[in-house]
Amino acid sequence: MRTITPAPVRRSFSVKAPPQRAFDVFAAGMGRWWPPSHHIGEGELAQVIVEPRVDGRWYEKTSTGAECDWGRVLVWDPPRELVLAWQLSADWTYDPDLTTEVAVTFTPDGTGTRVDFEHRGLEAYGQRADEVANSVGSPGGWPAILQSFATLADS
């Protein structure tokens, strides 16, 4: 039996900010650009937090005060690279036994920064891998989320 592995979701684009600002907006400022509709906890999304260290948590806080893990920090190398473990199931719940990776690099590009984004390891979803790849790669998934980041980084 042949297994087909879904391609990673990739995006590359430039922002006007220098690498350190782009990295900071992406990591420390995630709660300012992450779409409020994209959360897993009860209530409304209040904050998105990336703890600034390897093995730090990546999680949300909701208006009810609940904290819901999304994953953890695998690589913390400001202002060059950030890799996050995405540990959300195909049903959008936290699953500590599932890991895909969200990898972002920030490269000086003239007066701004080239941002290379990749959500990889989607084969971890097994039979639902294509479904998840199509969802996170859809216009309402990473493309819209990254556009929100770019807009804030450019401001």
Rank of each mutant, 00 (worst) to 15 (best):
E118Q: 10
G112P: 01
R32L: 10
D97S: 09
L146Q: 01
P79W: 07
I40N: 03
A85S: 06
D116F: 03
E81R: 14
E44G: 12
G41D: 11
A133R: 15
P6F: 06
S14V: 13
R80I: 01
I49V: 13
E67H: 12
Q87S: 15
T107L: 14
R120G: 04
A124M: 07
F26W: 08
L146I: 14
N134P: 00
A85K: 03
R32Q: 12
L152N: 00
D77L: 05
E67L: 14
E131S: 04
V83Y: 04
T5S: 10
D55W: 01
W142N: 13
H119E: 00
Q147Y: 07
L122A: 03
Q47W: 02
L45Q: 02
G140H: 15
W92Q: 13
P6V: 04
P108R: 11
R53Q: 09
F23M: 05
S37W: 04
G31Y: 10
P18A: 15
A144L: 13
I4T: 15
T107S: 05
D116A: 02
G31K: 05
Y59V: 01
S155V: 06
A153I: 08
P96R: 15
S148F: 06
P52G: 07
T100A: 13
E118K: 01
K16R: 11
S12R: 13
G137V: 06
D130H: 10
G43T: 02
A17P: 08
R32H: 09
E131C: 03
Q147T: 02
A27H: 06
E51T: 13
W86R: 01
L146G: 04
G56R: 08
T151F: 07
A27Y: 02
D95N: 14
E44Y: 04
G43R: 04
E67T: 10
G141Q: 09
T62H: 13
M1S: 14
P139W: 08
S148Y: 00
Q127I: 07
G43L: 05
F13L: 11
F13H: 01
S148I: 09
T151Q: 14
V115A: 00
T107C: 02
T105M: 10
E42P: 05
G110Q: 07
A129G: 11
E123V: 10
A103T: 12
E131D: 12
Q87M: 12
T64I: 02
F117V: 00
R21P: 02
G31D: 11
L45H: 01
E51A: 08
Q20I: 08
P139E: 14
E60P: 08
Q127M: 04
H39I: 04
Q127C: 04
P8M: 14
R114F: 00
L152I: 10
R11T: 06
R120D: 02
S155A: 13
A46M: 13
A153C: 09
F106I: 05
T99Y: 02
